[in-house]
Amino acid sequence: MARWARGLRLVGVTVVLSTYFATAPIGYGIFALLSLVPTRDPVRRARLLQWIMQTAFGSMHAVLRWMRILDFDPRKVEGEIPKTPCVLVANHPTLTDISAMLATEEHLVFPVKPGLFASFWARPLLAQAYHFAGAAPNAFDVGEVVDDIVDRLRKGFRVIIFPEGTRSPEGGLHPFGRTAFEAAVRAGVPIVPLVITCEPRWLSRGRSFYSRVDAVPRLRIRALPAVEPEDAGSSSRTLRDIVCDRIRSELGYADRHERIRRRSGMPRNARGDGSMERDCGSEAQDRRIGSGAGSKAGSKVGQESEAKAGSTD
């Protein structure tokens, strides 16, 4: 990208950011007013609020595309995303992918950082749209998150989760948490793996709004075939591993890891069972091949989850 083009891009990013911060209070105002209006049907209102979010993010991405800041068209997502309740699970290469997903699909709900969700100005807005707090670092809070996801699915929404819990590193994936998969098993809904790419990388970890890029970043989203809990024996652990492997394979990471291993002549791992090469869960988690651990406690654990045990994604 020529120097003048990079300069123009920086100007464009500044204009978009300035416009956003100048007009966001208007949007928040409309959102807040709608949130405060009493209603007999909170689900219907949540759908209306979600539609506003989708329209806002759709407009934002149209501007970003028009200004050649980010090449993404919400109408051109590859593959089929079911309209019925399901859990969408994606890698997370850039900050822009969540807004891209919200611009693409209607009636999506997502976990919000607990600190933001608890803030006095954001919670009423997010809660009325049926978004929910994600797990805090405290490992004993995950039960509430699982219950919240199951509740949203039973209300007919679709939930999007980034199971790495943070943005993906370049050339790989962080270990996947199990929360999304446990909720899918308990609710009996499919997981839809999403493969997201952003080339060149922009707004990934360590790359800010103003970081240099050599071309207009292209954001692409591809939906893979849904995986039913039954395909994994209703085990959240197995379901996680299947979905993680599919996403890694689509991104070409599985082959790359295998090539590196072969070239180096290293054993697959100290135990020889291949788990060191895996990104799906921790190494110790991979020792377990038993099925049903995530689901056998079922709704009983759901009730118990008020005891707040666990953290995750």
Partner: peptide, 9 residues
């Protein structure tokens, strides 16, 4: 290496 779901169970 247990995880959060294990904690629940």
């Amino acid at each position: 290496g247990l995880d959060s779901i294990d904690a629940l169970e």
